[in-house]
Amino acid sequence: MPFVGDGKAESAAEDETTTAEPVGVDAAEPSVDAAVEAARDAAVAVVFVRDRTTEAKDRDSLRLPGEQDELVEAVAAAADETVVVVASSGPVELPWRDDVDAILEAWYPGQADGAAIASVLYGDRDPSGRLPVTFAPEVAYPASEQRRYPGVDGEAQYEEGVFIGYRHFDADGVDAEPTYPFGHGHTYADVSYRDATVVDGRTVHVTVENVADRPGREVVQAYVRPPESSPVERPTRELAGFESIALEAGEARTVDLGLESRALGRYDLDRGWTVDPGTYTVEVARSARDVHKTVSLEVERGD
């Protein structure tokens, strides 16, 4: 579960907390006025929202269904602090994100969701997940009306090629900024990166320290930029490796991120997976947009 909100990554719950059930689902819609009244008397208001999708039905919009956005906005205006827990199958629009104190993306967590979410909100567990997708405004995604889904005359077009997912937002000519980038997520700890080097040819060595007074988890990520001499057009950066680590308060650990040939390579129709010679830039980061250290990796000949 990643904390994706820009608010403080602190324990989000207090002794007096009120929750408002999602609006726009199968049950009768609860009153927004009732939720606002409850929020005024609570130390922290926790609002649960969700999307509506199944294995047999795609969403036709990234907006939350019903009046859930209006519910969150009304509660946030009334409460001293507001936390929103999002249960969704993928990215959703969050028009109220600047008005709330924290957002927890819970996905579809299953039968233990109540206990799992409570353990994160109360600070008993660190929100150690990171986003496997990009959250962005709906107009920012590379969709061309009906051409991709369901297609035209039974054919779906995928013109984006390799520039799919987070790679799209780094492509030339794309001005849209992600709301929350691929790999993003908060921890209750404060983490510092230092001493990034390349050892043994294709292993990135980096020291990560928890400078907080409480334990936490960090997901160390490595993104690769291809050589300028690449014979084909490639994404600006691609995820090449990652490692999730637990850190006690004040603990420092050295993480080794081994970059396999597939992480550096591209697919050639004639030769299969190919690593071009040249200088690769490796970005050690907390997300696709939050780079902390940069090192160079030399490849003298391709594999």
Rank of each mutant, 00 (worst) to 15 (best):
R125Y: 11
V32P: 02
A212N: 07
D99S: 14
G129Y: 05
Y108H: 10
G129E: 07
A118V: 13
G201E: 05
E248V: 00
Y108Q: 11
A240V: 01
V211M: 06
I245Q: 11
A13N: 03
E283Y: 05
D41I: 04
A196V: 01
V198C: 05
Q111T: 08
D256H: 12
H184L: 03
A27W: 14
V25K: 13
A74W: 01
H205D: 15
A285H: 05
D126E: 12
P150L: 10
W107F: 14
G241I: 02
A43V: 04
R97H: 09
Q68C: 02
P2A: 15
T279Y: 04
A13W: 08
T54I: 03
S31H: 05
R130T: 09
V72Y: 02
G272M: 08
V275G: 03
D303F: 11
A116Q: 14
A39C: 07
A285S: 15
A35E: 03
L121D: 04
E37W: 01
A74T: 01
S88D: 06
E67Q: 13
E21Q: 11
S144V: 07
V299I: 15
Q157S: 10
A28F: 05
E138K: 06
T281R: 14
R234V: 13
E145V: 00
G183T: 02
V284T: 01
H205N: 14
D170G: 13
R194A: 15
V162G: 03
P137K: 13
P215M: 10
P137E: 15
E81G: 02
H186D: 12
D170R: 12
E228A: 14
R214P: 00
G161Y: 01
R286W: 00
S11C: 05
Y180D: 12
A140Q: 07
D98A: 10
V191I: 15
S119A: 15
T179R: 14
E81K: 14
F163T: 02
A28M: 08
A189W: 02
Y149S: 09
T134N: 10
H292I: 02
T207E: 15
Y223V: 01
G66T: 04
V4G: 00
D98M: 02
E260C: 00
P65N: 04
T17C: 14
